[in-house]
Amino acid sequence: MARWFGRSRSRSYDKPGAAAESEHLEPLGVSDDLRLAYGRTGDPKLLRGSLQAAELAVEVYPVDDIRHAAALSSLCMLHRLSWERDRSAADLVKAVDYGRQAVDKSLPGDPVLPRHMSSLATALQEVYDSTKDTESIDEAIALYRGCLDIMPVRAAGLNEERVAQESNLANSLLRKGRTANDSAILDEAAEHARAALRDTPEDHPMHAPRLINLGGALLGLVQTGHREHMAAAEDMYARGLRGLPVGHPSRAGVEQTLAIIKGLRRQFGV
């Protein structure tokens, strides 16, 4: 799942001169700082403060300022975080609504439009996870594809945001492919998961999760009858498990899945 915990590129510190000195006075900057602090501490008061600052930012910045769309996108993300914390359906509805507004009100050439699209897509993916509404996952997939279409491809070096969108698209396709038991969709999920993994250095903190993501796509193919992917799925999960830090919340689930794959290999002799 995509989580934009970095600072907004629409903040005043991106501007030269004296304007950068007053970034702490800007509501979008305040919202960003409080959101980052919430990510570190999990304190719900910080999340509420970040929401209030983002709401103020929507009022302060005019529609023809790229920070207006950025503030709407922040509200999308923040209400999704509230949903993840409290599971209030109203938060998820607001996340999608603000995400749509952010995309619709982005100005031509806005360099962070892919972030707004991704934030909306992630909210829609949460809708799908809770409701199994196929239109939501289809829209999320279309948005992630759109992100990749408009993001630049670098000749050299790691474009982290583009790689993240490859991984996000893979995860959305995996969700749809598993539900539909559709090997063609799962094949595409594996293709994008491989691309994300290929472009993620081994010392990158997302390397282990992306190994596991590819393993999940391959396991999905196994579950549609393609047992030839079983050994590769086990390898991805095993390597991913070795790369996860001790105490990582995903370790137990990965260990359980790895045990299931090993059992299937013994059962089918592959």
Rank of each mutant, 00 (worst) to 15 (best):
A2W: 14
S8W: 13
S10W: 07
S12E: 09
S12H: 04
S12Y: 02
S12I: 05
P16S: 15
A18G: 00
A19N: 03
E26C: 11
V30P: 03
D32N: 10
L36R: 14
A37G: 05
Y38T: 07
T41G: 10
L46P: 06
L46F: 05
G49K: 08
S50V: 08
Q52P: 01
E55M: 11
E55G: 06
Y61W: 14
P62F: 12
I66A: 08
A70L: 06
S73C: 10
S74E: 12
L75I: 13
R80I: 00
L81D: 09
D86V: 07
S88R: 14
A95W: 02
V96L: 08
Y98K: 00
Y98Q: 00
R100L: 15
K105F: 04
P108G: 08
P108R: 13
G109N: 08
H116V: 00
S119H: 07
T122A: 11
A123Y: 04
L124W: 02
S130E: 14
D133F: 06
T134V: 14
S136C: 10
S136M: 09
I141D: 05
A142G: 15
C147T: 08
A155S: 15
E160I: 12
Q165G: 05
N171Y: 06
L174K: 14
S183R: 12
A184Y: 09
A184N: 11
E188H: 09
A189E: 07
H192N: 07
A193N: 12
A193F: 02
A195N: 04
A196W: 01
L197M: 14
L197A: 14
D199A: 15
E202H: 08
H207I: 00
H207P: 02
L214S: 12
A217Q: 02
A217D: 06
G220A: 12
H229S: 04
H229G: 03
A232F: 09
E234L: 06
D235C: 00
Y237N: 01
Y237P: 02
R239L: 02
R239H: 00
R242K: 13
L244T: 03
G247H: 03
H248P: 00
H248Y: 01
R251F: 05
G253P: 02
G253H: 05
V254P: 01
L258H: 02
A259R: 13
F268A: 14
G269W: 13
